[in-house]
């Protein structure tokens, strides 16, 4: 660990320096000056992935921080009091990407702003579209891909894209090793990050085919998704993969709808589908993600979805239909 990187966390506020001058205090007052016991005691700024993992191993309670757009908001709101922070901002190897076996290895420190740029959009268009939709410029400049995964917010815009890409995460392990698990496993809680582990890279396939990310929000300005749909075509496997974000704690994959529409398509031809097929796909996806409530007892009126859920279902249906239409156009 780079010892010189230890920076004591100073109190952000000046404290009363001479309590004896403050006059008679009321009963019960201890009359002592405190530092901020809640502020992180230690902040480590490693220069490499190995150092970061070593720091996390050495301080199991430390929290890694990249863009801090979610983490620091939680700290400021008093929801989180990390005793130590490992800042990832100096690890340059995590802030770019490289290629391996026909896939891209995306550094977890890639910011939304970087992902949204045209050169990246040429590689993985849907992820670039999601990054451009991921909040106002200030958030996009700071927030990172790895942070999006680690926060696992249901409205995380990159998450449905990663799910649709069948992306995997490379997790750096303490002893210099790594393991690789599907993003969806991490998001669904099938597998968890263990002590000392750090999300290092995301392996995303380069599909060289159209892909779309669409998001419905309540306003014209940047906002959290009410629902989002990522759809990618995988011509090599003759597959359509689609994931729906924001309607459930983790992105949902309507597998049956994907297979159905992939079977419908003429992969060797122009890949177009009639509007009815697009609409049917949308409805298929929506019904899979927002299912009807289970039927009631015999003779009872069948339960109905509340109006808000019905609107959400229509929204997902429209998004999925539009996404497929744009991918095939």
């Amino acid at each position: 660990m780079c010892q010189s990187c230890h920076v004591p966390a100073g109190s952000p506020y000046r404290t009363a320096e001479r309590p004896e001058l403050l006059g008679d205090t009321a009963e019960g007052a201890a009359g002592l000056t405190t530092h901020a016991p809640q502020a992180a005691q230690t902040v480590v700024l490693p220069d490499s992935l190995d150092e970061a993992v070593a720091a996390l191993t050495a301080m199991p309670a430390a929290v890694p921080v990249a863009g801090g757009t979610d983490l620091m908001a939680a700290v400021n709101a008093g929801l989180l009091r990390p005793s130590a922070l490992v800042g990832l901002g100096r690890i340059s190897e995590l802030r770019g990407w490289h290629y391996q076996d026909g896939a891209a290895l995306l550094g977890s420190g890639l910011t939304h702003a970087r992902i949204g740029r045209p050169d990246f959009a040429a590689l993985i268009p849907a992820l670039a579209a999601a990054a451009r939709a991921a909040g106002p410029p200030q958030v996009r400049n700071a927030g990172t891909l790895g942070g999006n995964i680690a926060s696992a917010d249901r409205t995380g815009d990159a998450l449905p894209v990663l799910a649709a890409l069948d992306a995997t995460v490379l997790i750096a392990e303490p002893a210099g090793g790594h393991r690789e698990i599907p993003v969806s496993h991490l998001l669904a809680g099938v597998e968890m990050l263990r002590t000392g582990e750090l999300i290092a890279f995301v392996r995303a396939p380069l599909l060289h085919a159209p892909q779309v990310f669409l998001k419905a929000t309540g306003r014209t300005g940047p906002g959290r998704a009410a629902a989002s749909v990522a759809l990618v075509l995988d011509p090599a496997r003759r597959a359509v993969r689609c994931a729906v974000g924001a309607v459930a704690p983790a992105p949902l994959r309507p597998m049956e709808a994907e297979q159905w529409v992939a079977g419908l398509m003429d992969w060797d031809g122009h890949r177009g589908l009639p509007p009815e097929a697009l609409a049917a796909f949308g409805d298929y996806v929506a019904a899979a993600c927002i299912p009807d409530p289970p039927p009631g007892a015999e003779g009872e009126e069948p339960p109905r979805l509340p109006a808000a859920a019905l609107h959400l279902r229509r929204t997902v249906s429209a998004l999925a239909r539009r996404a497929l239409g744009r991918a095939l156009s």
């Binding site: 939709a133 929000t217 306003r219 014209t220 906002g223």
Partner: peptide
């Protein structure tokens, strides 16, 4: 700018 914003899902036809 379509309803839904610059990166939204807006489609001119609807």
């Amino acid at each position: 700018l379509l309803p839904g914003g610059p990166e939204g899902a807006g489609e001119p036809g609807v």
